[in-house]
Nucleic acid binder design. Structure first.
Lengths: 201, 201
DNA sequence: CAGGAAACATACCTTTAGGTCGGTATTTAC
DNA sequence: GTAAATACCGACCTAAAGGTATGTTTCCTG
């Protein structure tokens, strides 16, 4: 039995890497553990040594990888921001990068799968959305406090609106053919953000 | 061999009925043709007599059922409307009905599955989104012509924005626990719609 | 009312799914 | 340095997947 050097942490990470590719591109139901371990250059023995079953693997991948990816993409950049400009710029940047298989699309795709809705997977995905909404709401609140954003704005509601919109864009413009539509969404999004502004009297 | 009376059209419709339940609740990849025919009280013989394979069944179901459902929910009601109020009222109504397994959620969920992206399924789903966007854009154009909607508004872009938002809401608030978030989205949506209005000078 | 075509049912086939099990190689702990 | 624990491989198991093949029954047509 030829066996490569034992590096449990590396192996674990390699599995999570492969899981990322599979779950992002094929969703949960569409993911085959066979293909997964094959692309990782491993076997099922390694997989089930590190993870008890498919659902748990998915849950751990979401928590350890997807959540932090979303955090890096959408939350950290807003951490100390309080202006509509920073929000707009981030949206512009992320929209230009949007592609099938990226973290934002993967999050939407997994959340859209119904089986995930009411069990542990759904909970984990919900947590990500909550955190995301929280980050946006934080910016809006700081903006209000700084007088940059109109005081009639409800941060939590607007944040929910915005996160839903972004998720919706990844879903409704998945095809590369829809790039034009995606730009249209961004354009309207920018106009919408402007309506949140507190205009100096 | 006990065989019920032959009613090919009824059988076909029964299969499409069952397909609706399966695809809506489990997505494309998550749907099992075995369960499908079982819930329809039929057998695979009947299925594959009427439909050549799974993908084609899905395509036909989308075209014959899902498309018309979306049309009835989101397009026909706007056919001759030209006011933001009618758009807002429709959104209110549909949002209150939103549930996992309904046509709007099913559309988003299927579109979110990547395998559908670039093949025939993707095309068909795209057509639905296009038509939906067209219906909303039509209302906005009529509203502009009637002087109800601000002339700086770009109907196509706003329509894309709105459709993406609705799809996003079904994805990000799938859990019944998220009803509150859904209401928040609706609230912000109504505020957003107001910003499209052409204010009388 | 015969015969052929259409509408199903039943049984089965192949592949692949998620998952298990025993063994072997490697580390770690003493 | 040896024993026990860990990491991993490879073969395998069962169930279920999508799909086929061949029936048998009903219908439609002449």
């Amino acid at each position: 039995m030829i066996q490569r050097k034992k590096q449990p942490q590396l192996t674990r990470q390699a599995i999570l890497d492969a899981a990322g590719g599979e779950f992002s591109h094929s969703g949960y139901a569409g993911t085959s553990l066979g293909r997964l371990v094959a692309t990782a250059g491993l076997t099922k023995g390694a997989l089930f040594h590190h993870f008890p079953d498919k659902r748990t693997l998915a849950k751990i991948w979401i928590e350890e990888r997807l959540a932090s990816a979303i955090e890096a993409l959408w939350m950290t950049p807003l951490e100390h921001a309080d202006s509509l400009e920073s929000l707009r710029n981030l949206c512009r940047l992320r929209f230009s990068e949007l592609a099938t298989g990226d973290a934002t699309s993967a999050l939407s795709a997994l959340a859209a799968e119904d089986p995930a809705a009411e069990d542990l997977l759904g909970r984990v995905l919900e947590k990500i959305f909550d955190a995301w909404r929280g980050a946006v709401a934080g910016l809006l609140e700081r903006g209000k406090a700084a007088g940059r954003i109109h005081r009639s704005i409800q941060p939590a509601a607007e944040a929910a609106f915005l996160v839903a919109l972004i998720a919706g864009v990844t879903v409704t413009t998945k095809s590369p053919r829809a790039a034009e539509t995606r730009r249209a969404c961004l354009s309207s999004l920018e106009d919408y953000l402007e309506t949140l502004r507190n205009l100096p009297t």
